[in-house]
Each structure stands twice: as structure tokens, then as C-alpha cells.
Design a protein around this nucleic acid. Structure first.
Lengths: 331, 331
DNA sequence: TAGGATGTAGAAAACGGTTTCCGAAAACGT
DNA sequence: ACGTTTTCGGAAACCGTTTTCTACATCCTA
């Protein structure tokens, strides 16, 4: 293995100088920088990220915390995108990322979680899929011992940023689109919501309700708990007499569509997320596509920003209104 | 952060002694072990895995190399399972795991990949989804600089183990089941295979052909290249006159089933993998379910075994013949 | 009872970087 | 020409482990 010392020797400088060059410290002359970089090139030197992480109390590593158990197919696709995005951005920034799963911390006290993270030299975490019931993780973030970036939760402080689409606005947009492309404001809409312990659910419901006021259509909200099965049952019971079924997630939209198909009625259905599975679920469905990969990347960059000492903020990312067709997901 | 020194002081021993206790070295008395463990408990000490990785040339970290870009929905589910399994087993063994994606190494020479892995203190890798075209990664494994565990590739040497189901046997089993549960050996079977640069494709084809000889049914093999689209097209063209469609992957089975449905014929279709999406794809489909999570776990354990100095081997894991129904995937 | 095994514990040198601090040289002002 | 500031580069301590090597008991054997 070629180390920083080899580079130093080759370039005829001290190791500390090489380190400074690697990390773009100011107090090195152009001349020296060039010599060192040349040596790095020649020796194919790549700094050891483990050693770097150990020695510097500044940088450290970033953990991506997800819960792929939650929502089956949808969640494995989504979580994978988050992770891939973060890993890619981490790679570019010469930063190790550590994938962790909620299930690993089941039943742990905050202190123990903290210790475990510390023991992995983790200075910053990205949390995806958090809901209000997960007290330990919420507290972990609130203690601000780590720089945190939370996806889809309204947490913001000195050391905490949040990132995600504007769920209320997106819900309005997709619903408006669905309504106007169909019979119009005289429609009556059944909204099947996600689990109520989730911030995105609140926002999406808020969006739907605001739009209902604005446009003057009739809106019925029912709790589908992010469950495809429940959404299906609700649709069986109450879907027939409605004109449009809007759902707080794609999986529920798929459940609703199954029910409609079985009942032989063909109301338009809209979902939320933009998962691939939608392509398999039948015609007449639209959804809000979130770019999870991009959110993962962006979240990682935000971690770097926070570790650089800047203070937490709120980041809104763009979304698309799409119709996922089978032809599009076919490969 | 509580370090090994704090523990040593508390227990009244040297740091090296604490280290020995942590790593279950023999030369420590019961008495001392007890005292040290007590101190560890009291201080809630968790050893720093980064420091451990840096200092020990023996242990180090394990990378999981996957390619979730390959097969869309199927692959994100499968790769996620591999990763989760490995992360879980790694967690238990106090071992950091590093997720990496094939795309990161696109166009790199073997040497550069080696340097990059070294720079992350990686001593062992798990490679999932490798095919014959990926020269650099294949060479990486063959150079035996790292302890490798390859999923579904027949590589075996001093430092390389392979793991996976017996694809030929599994293909025989599922095909036999499908045939006997239908019209019997007079059937004519269309087998849509995966990409030919893949070992599993060869094995599965071999299984199908051997069974065809044994049972005496007519078998037509066509290359579907793991593509849902291609499988669909093939089925459109040649599926009508057959009795059974067998596919080298679930995604292709889904494509085939779509075609059959569109043609309004209802031959049984069997796939291979056991992905959740199968539950959404219609009736009359069976498949071989592989336990990817378990394979990920087992692969990690095999890494540990290899790092412990034992020599490579071949591991076969069990599989199930199942019918994935919508009710089963519903949540 | 001398000599070697054996068992147990500690001191210190790694591992490969980062960072602090200090001194020499160069640039500047008067 | 001389003091003062800046700029640049190096020496060394440090991050938290592991591992080797040494030291001292204790025990056994001849």
C-alpha cells in the first residue's frame, strides 16, 4: 500500500505538507502543490479513508439510516435509491458512507445508539423514512450530537437540516391535474391517506383539503395507513360512488385500482411517490414522481455543508407529475 | 468518547489486556476477564471499529458489490436483500460493511480498483450479480488480493468462495412441478433464457434440457436476455402453440404472462427468483424463491471464514418452489 | 534445585493519516 | 539596513485500536 509518507518522500516534502495539499489547505505554494500532485499521480496514491476518519475529529463518516422493512416493494426501491444517491455523492467527496437500518436500533436507548454511532466514527447521519413514533431516533436528532439531515420530516436546528418535496403542494398539483383532466370541480374525491404518525401524510392531506376549498369539490378523507390492503378495502366500500380516488402513496393507489378493476368501474386514481411498480398496475393512474436518488445525493451534500459548520436549513426539491406506463418500466 | 484506555484504567490493567479480552485471546485469566468486562459494562464501552480496522491488518472491512441498475425493480429488491443480510451479519460480527456499486468502477483498470479498495481498508468483498463481461471485476477476484465471496458465479480458489442455489437443479424442480401439475410429458415447453454471459443462465438452461431428456417433453430454448420486453415479444410470436412457458427470471415470466393475457391464452408460466413483483403479475405463475437476505448473511460469514485463513469453497443454499399470490405480497 | 515450559500481564511500536505549533525565509515598511 | 509581519514547510503529537515482544511468576520435570 502506498501511503502519504511515500508521496512525501517522492515529492521531497514533509507528510504534513502532503496532507495539506490533499485537503486544499491554503498555506502551500503553487509550486509545492504541483510537485506533490505529481508524486500522487505517479504513485497512484489514494488516501486511506479509514486513517483519515480516525485522525480527524472534523470529517468522519456519514451514516444513511433507512427502514426497508416498512413498505415492502415500494420501500426497497425507494431506500435503494436513497442509498445509491448518497453513496455516489459520498464517493465524490472522498467520504465513507455507512448504511444502517432502523431494525438495528430496535429497543435501544438513545445513549446506546449514540455510542454505537460514535464507535463507527460517524459524525453525521441521513435519516429516511422516520415517523413520529420513533422516539429514540427523533431524540437522537434533537440532541444535536450529530449533524443530521432528515428526509421528509420538519426538523430544523443548528445541526439539523431537512430535505424533501413540498408534499402539500405536490398533492394539490396532482389532484388538480387529475380533476381537470376529468369531469371537473363537480367531482367527488375519495382521499385515502397514509399513516397518521407521518408528517408527509399530514402535509398531503392538508394539500388535498386546501385544494378542495379552492376548487369547491367534495372531499372524503379516509385513513389507509399506507396499506395496499386497507386502501383496497376502503375502495371496495366507498369507491364506487366517487369520481376520483386519490391516495397518499402509490402502493395504496395500486390497491385502490385493484378494487376498482374488480368492481368493474374505472375512476381515475392518483398516487404519490412514482415507484416503478405503478407501471404494472394498470392504466389511468397518475402520480407524483419524487427523485429519490437525487434526494439521497443532495442529503449527503447537505451533511457535508453541516459538517463544515454551516447551520441547518430546509431544502425543497422538485417533483414531476407523471403517468407511469408499462412501456416506460419495460426493459 | 469512552476509549479502551478508560476501560483499562477502570479495570486496573493495561490497554493491551483489554484488547485481548475484547478479541477473546486465550492468554488472559478468568479473573482479569471478569474485571475487564465489568469495566466495559459500567462505562458502556463500544470499541471503535475504525481504529480497529486501521490497526489490524487482519480483520478490516467487507465491501458488498452490487449492480442495482441492471434489472430495475427486480434488482433493487434483490440487491437490497443482499445488502441488508450482509449488514446484519456484519453488525453481529463487529465488522463494518461498505456498500459499493459496479457503476463506480466503470472503465477502471484492476489496479485502480484495488487501490481504491485498499484505501478503504477493505480486505474482503462480496460480489453479487457479476457476469462474464465484467473483466475488471473478474480479474480483481482472480488476483486473490482480497478474500472474495461471489454469488452465483463458479469461482473457487484459495481466497475465493462462491455461494448460491443449485440453479440447474432448481430449474429442473420448478419445471417438473409445472409440467406434472398440468398436462404432463406430452407438453411442449418454451424456455425463455437469460443473458448468455451469465453463469446462472447456463445452469438453468442445462437443468431444463436435462429434464427434457429425462421426461421426454419437447423443449424450445430462446434467448430472452433477462428482458421483460424481449420475453413478451418471444411469447407473442411463439407462445401460443406451446403448453408451458418457462422463464429464466421472474421479470421475463411477467413479460411472458402479459403477452399470454393479451393473446387471451392461459398457459402456465414459471419464473425464477421469487421477487415480490410476481404477486402483481397474475395467476397461474410459479417460481423458484431464493432467499437473498439469507444469502447476503451467509456470504458475510463466509468472508469472515476466509479472513480467518480457511480456504475457499462452494456453498449451496436451499430454495423453495412457490406460487407468489397477490394476497401474500399485500400489506 | 537448576532448567525449561507454561500462563499471564504490560510497554511500546505500529496502522496512515490530520493538526498544531514553531521556525526559517521572504516580503514589507520606515 | 533593520525590525516587523507574512508566507511556507516541517517536526511531532495525536486519533483508538492491535500486536509483538518482553518480563515475571508459577509449575513441572529431571
Amino acid at each position: 500500500m502506498v501511503t502519504i509518507r511515500d508521496v512525501a518522500k517522492r515529492a521531497g516534502v514533509a507528510v504534513s505538507t502532503v496532507s495539506k495539499v490533499i485537503n486544499n489547505y491554503p498555506s502551500v505554494s503553487e509550486d509545492t502543490i504541483a510537485r506533490v500532485n505529481e508524486a500522487i499521480e505517479e504513485l497512484h496514491f489514494i488516501p486511506n479513508s479509514v486513517a483519515a476518519s480516525l485522525s480527524s475529529k472534523q470529517s468522519g463518516r456519514v451514516a444513511v439510516l433507512t427502514d426497508p422493512d416498512g413498505q415492502t416493494l415500494a420501500s426497497s426501491e425507494i431506500m435503494m435509491q436513497y442509498i445509491m444517491g448518497a453513496v455516489k455523492a459520498g464517493n465524490e467527496a472522498r467520504l465513507d458512507i455507512v448504511p444502517l437500518f432502523f431494525s438495528m436500533f430496535a429497543g435501544m436507548e438513545v445513549e446506546e445508539i449514540e455510542h454505537r454511532l460514535e464507535a463507527q466514527n460517524i459524525r453525521s447521519i441521513i435519516v429516511c423514512g422516520l415517523d413520529r413514533d420513533m422516539k429514540a431516533l427523533t431524540e437522537l436528532i434533537e440532541r444535536e450530537k450529530f449533524k443530521s439531515v432528515v428526509v421528509d420530516m420538519p426538523m430544523e436546528s443548528e445541526n439539523t437540516s431537512n430535505i424533501g418535496v413540498d408534499h402539500a403542494q405536490a398533492q394539490k398539483d396532482i389532484l388538480r391535474k387529475t380533476i381537470t383532466e376529468n369531469s371537473g370541480p363537480s367531482d367527488s374525491v375519495l382521499y385515502i391517506s397514509g399513516r397518521t404518525n407521518s408528517y408527509v401524510t399530514e402535509e398531503r392531506i392538508r394539500g388535498a383539503m386546501e385544494l378542495s376549498e379552492e376548487m369547491g369539490f367534495e372531499l372524503t378523507v379516509m385513513n389507509g395507513a399506507f396499506s395496499e390492503k386497507t386502501a383496497r378495502e376502503i375502495t371496495f366500500k366507498y369507491g364506487r360512488d366517487k369520481d376520483i380516488i386519490a391516495c397518499g402513496s402509490d402502493l395504496m393507489a395500486i390497491g385502490a385500482m385493484k378494487a376498482l378493476t374488480d368492481m368493474n368501474v374505472f375512476h381515475p386514481v392518483c398516487g404519490f411517490d412514482g415507484i416503478t411498480l405503478m407501471g404494472y398496475a394498470g392504466k389511468n393512474m397518475t402520480t407524483v414522481r419524487q427523485d429519490f436518488y437525487c434526494i439521497g445525493e443532495e442529503a449527503l451534500r447537505e451533511c457535508i455543508r453541516l459538517m463544515g459548520g454551516e447551520t441547518g436549513r430546509s431544502i425543497k426539491v422538485p417533483y414531476d407529475l407523471v403517468q407511469v406506463r408499462y412501456e416506460d418500466v419495460l426493459n
